[in-house]
Amino acid sequence: LLPSFEIGAWTEDDVYCWVQQLVRKGDSSAEMSVYASLFKENNITGKRLLLLEEEDLKDMGIVSKGHIIHFKSAIEKLTHDYIN
């Protein structure tokens, strides 16, 4: 489970856990499981996660359009939940 809904306070480890949970919950393929490490390697914290754009995801090595859409949708939901 994630430490809190205060996404802005999430550490790199918290984001890593979130990506792992996202991959487990989704209908995503096994190749998506490597993405948790990509987020950690790129020092993505909660604040940075909320700022990620499609180009950032591509720069991190996420090239599948479907996977990018999956992440963007999940990040938008997080942003919405965080604001409300």
Rank of each mutant, 00 (worst) to 15 (best):
D56G: 03
K65Q: 12
D81R: 10
S33Q: 11
Q20E: 15
V19T: 03
I7K: 01
M32C: 09
H80R: 13
I75K: 06
K40M: 00
G61C: 00
L57V: 00
H70S: 08
V63P: 05
E54M: 01
S37H: 13
C17A: 12
D59E: 14
F71G: 00
Y35I: 09
S29C: 10
S37A: 08
S28D: 13
E41Q: 14
S28V: 11
L38S: 06
K40L: 06
I68T: 05
I68Y: 04
D13P: 05
E54C: 00
F71Y: 03
V15D: 05
H67E: 06
I62W: 00
S33A: 12
G26D: 12
E41N: 05
T45W: 00
Q21H: 11
D59Q: 15
V15Y: 00
V23T: 12
N43K: 14
L52E: 03
L51F: 06
N84E: 11
S28C: 13
L1V: 12
D13G: 02
D81F: 11
I69M: 12
E41A: 11
H70G: 13
R24P: 12
E41K: 13
G61T: 02
L49H: 01
S37V: 05
V23P: 09
V34I: 07
L78K: 03
F71W: 02
K40V: 05
N84S: 13
I75T: 03
E31T: 07
G66T: 14
D56E: 04
S37E: 12
L78F: 02
T79F: 08
S28Y: 09
H80A: 13
E31G: 07
V23K: 14
L78I: 01
L2G: 13
D27F: 09
L51S: 14
E6C: 04
K65W: 07
D14N: 01
G8P: 13
Q21R: 07
L52I: 02
S33M: 09
M32S: 07
G61M: 03
Q20H: 08
D27W: 09
F71I: 13
A30F: 10
L49G: 02
I75N: 01
K58G: 02
C17D: 14
I83W: 13
L38I: 06
V19P: 01
A36T: 01
S29N: 10
E31R: 06
V23D: 14
T11K: 07
